[in-house]
């Protein structure tokens, strides 16, 4: 919901504080990503010590494949959340695109399978256009719009499928190959996810329009006044997120082969959770897609590790919940400490 503008933000003009802020901003996300890598490494190490089979080739493949979809979705979600919006419809978009690409390839098995990927991504992008237009043009809060489109897209999916399903036998082998082939031991979907993470990370970090997304998220009014095309950027973020959700849908279809209208139900909150665990502030303006991706990997590794550790599988969700609370609690603690340091720094500066 809305939060009062951050009164702790240092005043422009006090140069030392501003520089301090920049340093703190650079240091904090890095700390988060290092922490996540350490947490994943520790979890993997403990599980491996408990049962060395956890790092067998097949099991590693499964973990990577399991993390792929969530990672791609988390990257898109992070891009949206950074602008102080949120997209709750991604689960439905994934389902719609999975069904769209699968039934396209079932209908035209002779066409090259790349067209099926194109169809899925286009369906996702179209959903993103709807979300983005409603948020940016009609100026309706993103939480409300995407809660609505969550139902609408799922309804369209149901109507389209009308009880039918696509099975692996109906799909061309080349398409299913995407989900099965590996390059140097890394499954193709995981490679795609890595490319997505690196590309999105580079865009958000080094491109002007990428930086503008952060500016919009940290202070929309200021961003508008300084001439950033706020509406167009937010629209763009939603379209990007929709396309990525579409891509995730295609990968889902390629990996599992069988698709019905319920694919991806309830995934939206898991995606937001991955982004939050990855240090993307829910009110925008901070966090990286690397963090979001690592958050997604951590959540999927927990999924994979609990059964190996012979911990009751029913604990999985409770652990995820505690992790989210821990992550936002930690963010808050760091923010308070950074603010205190900044105040102290300003005194010395005066």
């Amino acid at each position: 919901m809305t939060e009062a503008p951050d009164t702790r933000t240092p005043q422009p003009g006090s140069a030392p504080a501003r520089r301090g802020n920049g340093r703190a901003n650079r240091r904090l996300p890095l700390a988060r990503e290092t922490g996540l890598v350490l947490a994943i490494a520790a979890l993997v190490a403990v599980t491996w010590l408990y049962n060395p089979l956890f790092l067998s080739e097949q099991s590693v493949r499964d973990i990577l494949l399991g993390a792929t979809l969530l990672t791609i979705l988390a990257v898109g979600q992070a891009t949206v959340i950074v602008t102080r919006s949120v997209d709750l419809s991604v689960g439905s978009v994934l389902g719609l695109s999975a069904f769209g690409s699968a039934s396209f390839l079932m209908a035209f098995p002779d066409l090259p399978f790349v067209l099926g990927i194109g169809v899925g991504v286009t369906v996702g992008a179209a959903c993103g256009v709807v979300n983005g237009a409603l948020v940016a043009v009609a100026r309706v809060p993103a939480l409300v719009v995407t809660l609505g489109t969550l139902y609408v897209f799922r309804g369209v999916d149901y109507w389209w499928a009308s009880g039918s399903r696509v099975d692996a036998a109906d799909l061309p082998e080349t398409f299913l190959g995407i989900g099965r082939q590996s390059v140097l031991g890394v499954p193709v979907p995981a490679l795609i996810a890595i490319v997505v993470v690196l590309a999105a990370g580079h865009y958000l970090r080094s491109y002007r329009s990428g930086r503008e997304l952060y500016a919009i998220g940290s202070q929309p009014a200021a961003a508008r006044l300084s001439g950033i095309p706020v509406d167009r950027r937010i629209f763009g973020a939603f379209v990007l997120n929709g396309s990525l959700a579409g891509l995730a849908g295609v990968l889902y279809a390629a990996r599992f082969g069988s698709v019905d209208a319920t694919v991806g139900t309830g995934m939206e909150l898991e995606v937001v959770a991955a982004a939050v665990v990855g240090g993307v502030a829910i009110f925008g303006g901070s966090g990286t897609v690397y963090g979001a991706a690592l958050g997604a990997v951590l959540l999927s590794t927990i999924d994979a590790a609990l059964p190996v550790l012979q911990i009751n599988q029913f604990w999985q969700q409770a652990v995820v919940g505690l992790l989210i609370l821990l992550a936002i609690g930690l963010d808050r603690l760091l923010a308070v400490r950074a603010a205190r340091r900044l105040r102290a720094g300003r005194h010395h500066g005066d």
Binding site: A273, Q316, V320
Partner: peptide, 22 residues
């Protein structure tokens, strides 16, 4: 703790549902 309720209750949503399964 001063945390945003949207994030907190997404967390407790998972935690309470998880406890229900436990």
């Amino acid at each position: 703790a001063g945390l945003p309720s949207l994030a907190v209750t997404i967390g407790t949503m998972a935690a309470y549902r998880g406890l229900a399964y436990v």
